[in-house]
Design a binder for these strands. Structure first.
Lengths: 257, 257
DNA sequence: ACCTGTGAATACATTCACAGCT
DNA sequence: AGCTGTGAATGTATTCACAGGT
């Protein structure tokens, strides 16, 4: 096996750490805003504040790309915009297909952020024949039967899956079979893909559950300790001055089903 | 200072690492599927495969929750479902408001995954008076003017922002002012919140940009190396049969506007 | 005087590998 | 014999703090 042995090789291509790659779009957005206001240069401190990170991290991140700043001055906004865009591959145009044109798929098709920077919705695909031919966001919906042809004709390498969970793996397999090597998955399923294919997942209910976890911690630890004999070591007293939501123990439901 | 001093204290409440918390929903989903098929017990190996992680990581994750398995046997599915649900705070019902009922907000309102487990869409809020009173997913849209009242009347502590970027910070401030302490942000902006408030971000264009970065690496490194004197050590040969999209240097736009 | 770029230090996360219980 | 639970080892990310340019 030439290309690597394990299931998920972390795709850390060359020098740039994944964590850094994940922040580059943030920097780019902040820089674009500065560029629109014709700000010529920016310091790591200012840019970090705009991107919501700390400046040491930002400088370290940029150091992986090269030495694009000027000591004593800062970074040239336009130049950095270009360098980061290039690093992210946004100086070329990426045709994207969206599969599954339900509520979410339609929302994605309409989402301006797609088109605005390097990405172009090349096709919308759905399995429902009733949708075929109808236009969503000005783009006609095509039938799943033609998926492979659509991918190949448009040279698509990035696919977005917005189908129900049950259809996602099958759609994924067909996308990959047709040559797609990057997938953004909105369906709440774990997708299995061959080596060399990247999958990123966006999962609403996972995000909510993570928030619920922290929310529960903020107020309510005592109430649970009170109801269960599982003796937790009574975490640090809360003392948050925020809103003092009260114990709120009147919602009944303890089990989901 | 009792409550913590810096801008974002990582919210690592007690013992459980953030990375583990982020995986609990995955485990829970896999376990729920097993539960529906009436599978009584599962080994770390099997469950890990279903959740798309490796078994050592899964066992370590579970070890933070307690010793809920049986050596030589595995984990009791029902029991684990309950323990993880409880840990995530899903044994109670979380009323959620969605602010911004455009395409995306409507998609979220309709998304089944919200309702299915502990979360309940308590209200939909939008600034457009034309929407007020109309029902989306069976829930009437209310006007932003009443935001504070809605939050308080429903005891909402989790808010979802699906407004345009320009409105997001303002909406966020009002949510926080009314007592919301967890925010799921779909708007492409960095939100600033006071200490003690959690924000999670879901950003489509960031995800796509990360994919584009890796995509660019897979095929096309030579083309870039060819155009720039930046001597890369020529990463592992790609051998992807994908689509051979070519160097494609003709799209000009480096800037959006 | 100022701000970048980066080694060194620290913190966090994953993986290994095996002791210990069933 | 089999599988969990976990210390120890390794790998990755963040932060510190300051040398080195402008």
């Amino acid at each position: 096996m030439a290309t690597g042995r394990t299931h998920r090789p972390a795709t850390r291509s060359r020098g740039i750490p994944e964590a850094t790659v994940a922040r580059l779009p943030l920097y780019l957005r902040a820089l674009t805003a500065l560029s629109e206001r014709s700000v010529p240069t920016v310091s790591s401190e200012e840019l970090a504040a705009a991107a919501g990170v700390n400046s040491a991290k930002l400088r370290k991140d940029f150091s992986y790309l090269g030495s694009y700043g000027t000591r004593g001055v800062g970074y040239d906004v336009e130049y950095l915009v270009y360098q980061i865009s290039r690093e992210l591959g946004l100086t070329q145009d990426w045709p994207v297909v969206i599969v599954g044109i339900g509520n979410l798929g339609a929302a994605l098709a309409n989402y301006g952020g797609f088109a605005s920077r390097g990405f172009r919705v090349a096709a919308l695909i759905d399995a429902d024949p009733a949708l075929t031919g109808k236009a969503v966001a000005g783009i006609p919906v095509q039938h799943t039967d033609d998926l492979e042809k659509i991918i190949k004709d448009n040279g698509v390498s990035i696919g977005v899956i917005a189908t129900p969970a049950g259809a996602a793996q099958q759609v994924c397999d067909r996308l990959v079979g047709a040559g797609v090597t990057s997938i953004l998955n909105f369906a709440p399923t774990v997708l299995t893909v061959p080596d060399g294919v990247d999958v990123r997942k966006v999962d609403l209910s996972i995000e909510l559950q993570i928030l619920a976890f922290h929310e529960q911690r903020k107020a309510g630890e005592e109430a649970i300790a009170d109801a269960l004999p599982d003796g937790l070591p009574a975490a640090a007293a809360s003392t948050t001055e925020s809103a003092d939501k009260g114990p709120d123990g009147d919602v009944p439901a303890v089990m989901p089903a």
